[in-house]
Amino acid sequence: MKRRHFIAASILVGLCAFTGQQAMAADKADPDKLRVALLPDENAATIIQNAQPLKAYLEKTLKKDVEIIVTTDYSSMIEAMRFGRIEVAYFGPFSYVLAKSKAPEIEPFAVGVEKGKPNYQSILIANVDGPVKTLADIKGHPFAFGDQASTSSHLAPRALLAKNGLIGDTDYKPVHLGKHDAVARAVAAGQAPAGALSETIYRVLVETKKIDPSKLRQLALSDPIPNYPMTLQGYLKPELKEEIRKAFIELKDPEILQLFRVEALAPASDKDYDVLRDMAKVLSLDVAKL
């Protein structure tokens, strides 16, 4: 009798565990709350405040609770996506490439369109009173970048400098300041003779009078970079993924779109970002190891 009771209890425990695993899988594929991460390229509190209209729109459209998340840096956002701590993420182009190399199941589904184009550029700037007047003058001086996983504040300008015969740690000293606005402020203040950031963010900083353009000179613009992609977890159920795609692609509210600094969102695919993988090759970067 004891043996039969033991076998029955074991079967019951196994069935409960299996049922629990099924429930967890179902919750993961169709969670009650969607965690949406936005890039930490400016102050986190400001980003979250500005994202409240997006949160309200998504909750109404998707009929789910939505939490807006801003991670401490690009790397922590990649890790959050990798380990399923967020369901939807607005990556920078290169940080998406890095995330995809670590979590192949994530899917880009939308890209920002600004002035009719799904791309943007990096701007290289110098302090107007400093020693750097041209790209060639960068040799022998520090150069300010943003986050190492940033496209327009690191990868694209670094590739441009390499094409002009300037190699980091050999011809100039790379200095990483984390955020785009930090680069612009450091160069304007003369704390760094030159640096690079998103041209779009630079224009916003000028328009909002957060930097004085008279203290800066433009050195160059990078080649076009594919815009920031919206991505989602591949393990979400197909119906939910389609609802998320539709919610973003059909987004028309200018106030919400301004959060992404775009006029609209268009469909995107992974191959759109092969140009970033090519830039990494120019710099001999192994994205899987970054």
Score class of each variant (00 low, 15 high):
residue 237 K to V: 07
residue 219 L to M: 07
residue 229 P to R: 10
residue 224 P to Y: 01
residue 242 E to D: 13
residue 236 L to I: 03
residue 210 K to C: 01
residue 237 K to G: 01
residue 247 A to R: 06
residue 251 L to F: 11
residue 252 K to M: 06
residue 222 S to C: 00
residue 256 I to T: 09
residue 211 I to G: 02
residue 211 I to V: 14
residue 231 T to Y: 03
residue 217 R to K: 15
residue 242 E to Q: 14
residue 251 L to A: 08
residue 209 K to D: 12
residue 215 K to G: 07
residue 248 F to P: 07
residue 212 D to G: 03
residue 224 P to E: 02
residue 237 K to R: 12
residue 257 L to S: 06
residue 249 I to V: 13
residue 231 T to N: 07
residue 226 P to W: 13
residue 228 Y to M: 08
residue 227 N to G: 15
residue 229 P to L: 12
residue 213 P to K: 10
residue 252 K to W: 04
residue 243 E to H: 06
residue 212 D to T: 04
residue 218 Q to D: 13
residue 208 T to M: 06
residue 236 L to R: 04
residue 213 P to G: 09
residue 220 A to R: 00
residue 232 L to F: 12
residue 247 A to G: 11
residue 218 Q to K: 15
residue 255 E to D: 14
residue 242 E to K: 14
residue 216 L to H: 08
residue 225 I to E: 02
residue 226 P to M: 11
residue 246 K to D: 14
residue 228 Y to T: 08
residue 227 N to P: 01
residue 225 I to M: 04
residue 249 I to S: 07
residue 249 I to Y: 09
residue 247 A to P: 06
residue 221 L to M: 12
residue 241 K to P: 03
residue 224 P to W: 02
residue 208 T to S: 14
residue 239 E to W: 01
residue 225 I to W: 03
residue 247 A to T: 08
residue 239 E to K: 09
residue 255 E to G: 06
residue 249 I to M: 05
residue 245 R to D: 10
residue 210 K to Y: 04
residue 253 D to F: 06
residue 226 P to E: 11
residue 211 I to K: 04
residue 243 E to V: 01
residue 232 L to K: 11
residue 230 M to N: 00
residue 213 P to R: 09
residue 257 L to G: 08
residue 229 P to W: 11
residue 255 E to I: 14
residue 241 K to T: 01
residue 222 S to Y: 00
residue 209 K to N: 12
residue 254 P to Y: 03
residue 222 S to L: 00
residue 237 K to S: 09
residue 233 Q to I: 05
residue 212 D to M: 02
residue 223 D to M: 10
residue 225 I to K: 02
residue 209 K to G: 01
residue 251 L to N: 10
residue 216 L to C: 10
residue 243 E to L: 05
residue 257 L to N: 07
residue 253 D to M: 05
residue 223 D to E: 15
residue 221 L to G: 02
residue 221 L to Q: 08
residue 229 P to Q: 12
residue 233 Q to K: 14
